[in-house]
Design a protein around this nucleic acid. Sequence first.
RNA 1: GGCCCGUUCGUCUAGUGGUUAGGACAUCUGGUUUUCAUCCAGGCAACAGGAGUUCGAUUCUCCUACGGGCUACCA
Length: 487
Amino acid sequence: MREKAIIRSLWLSFQYIKEMKVNKTRFCPSPTGLLHLGNLRTSLFSSLLAKKDNGSFLLRIEDTDLERSKKEFSVAICNDLKWMALDWDEGPEVGGKEDSYYQSERIDLYEEFYNTLLEKDLIYPCFTSEEELKIIRRNQIASGQPPRYTGVWSNATEEEVRDELDKGNKPVYRFRIPKDRTIEFKDLVKGEQSFSTVDLDDFIVRKKDNTPTFMFANAIDDSLMGVDLVLRGDDHLSNTPRQIALLEALGLSLPTYAHVSLFTGSDGAPLSKRNGSISINDLREQGYLPIAVANYLSRVGHTISDNDLKTYGELADSFKIDNISTSPSKFDKDQLLYWQKKAVEDLNIDECKGWLKDSLEDLPSSIDKEDFIALIKDNINFPHEAQDYLNNLFLTPLGERSEIIDVIKSAGKDFYLQAQEVITSEIIDWNETAKNIGSTTGKKGKELFMPLRCAITGQTKGPELDRVVNLIGTQQVIKKLKEASEL
RNA sequence: GGCCCGUUCGUCUAGUGGUUAGGACAUCUGGUUUUCAUCCAGGCAACAGGAGUUCGAUUCUCCUACGGGCUACCA
């Protein structure tokens, strides 16, 4: 017996030394709201870890809270994940060996485990109402006691239980937490953990309406579904010993745990609109590229030694669970923007076309879409900026562009009239033409180029003028110079 | 109240019992681009505080402070 234990512990430590290979990771959101960057990062980590070892990534919808769970949220969550290219190998829509990946549809399956636990007297019905519990808790706190379940029903007689049942009262079921035990586990991020069960309450595993609690369904499903690495938020760290106790009681396999620290808003408070965080949907609508978001998220709370923009495959290869940080991190929009710049830079013209699809609808038909994209690509980070270029170049009258009006006025009517006179034929070489305008008007340097730029492009900045002129053509240049001269 | 997790430039982070504590983003200053973006060069900027161990602590230990979590018929 003792030898067996020694061999087992040797084997366990060997497992730690020999780097653990991940078979299956999971993400299990509850559809009570939209995904935020924090959830998304956790799911990205899980997905990358699975990909790295050629394992699979599972999605499970934890909709056991019947009141707060909404179908529309689970749809939105799936869409957000798909947009991010965090495709799951098993779960809603794609299926798998489970009948359902929605916990609300697995209620019958949990019944069997309740029965087992009941037979073994590991759970017991409790009739203390929520109101009573609240009062008890308040009194405990007031008298300096730790707020605990007092356990009045843990050793109730069959008669007492029958009485309540006869009165039509519905019980919740509590798990009998083993007393005087220490539950130990190794967290892959936080290290060795040790919890004494005297600090743990008999927690509820089944609610009055017969639905399972998170503590129960989450642990059981992970085990049943063969998840071997549970990577989740730090907020679950102290729930872990409870779930371990439960799984052990049921004789179910334990996953390895990794608890990732919180990802907060810029002010350290939970992510919300107020501290700069944006919903995944907003990110998509603003034109953030999924690969930019992935590159950013992979580097917050996790270290990648270089600063190269990586594909998902490359991110997975460079993802290391040992490089996950133990301390919380804050959202920084500038750093997201940096990756967005890199990702846009990396886009080829075709990809760019798809990205800008909705922003170029008003482009004049005489202008080649790809040429236009090539012209502005290096100057934009978001589709709306492409639209700005488009508007300023072709649509918005110069008179409505307050940013340039002073430049045009101070250059004067005559400047633009003279410029027009210089252009007598098709412009072949803009730089030559500009030089001629310079000698005719007597202007040079900034005095020459800025008024021309403003009139022709409708703004003070942008790509090189000769490229712009090349794209829009002589007639458009003349039209703009005329417009400027009439202001 | 109990239990647990955490604290390195403004931000994301690297790192070590002896380092000029490194990088990136942001910011600032120059240069290139007759604009802007890019690019290049450079600057500013951090070990939460206190005690202990030690020849020596940012690194190890303890305490304190601060932040966070769990202690829910939420997940």
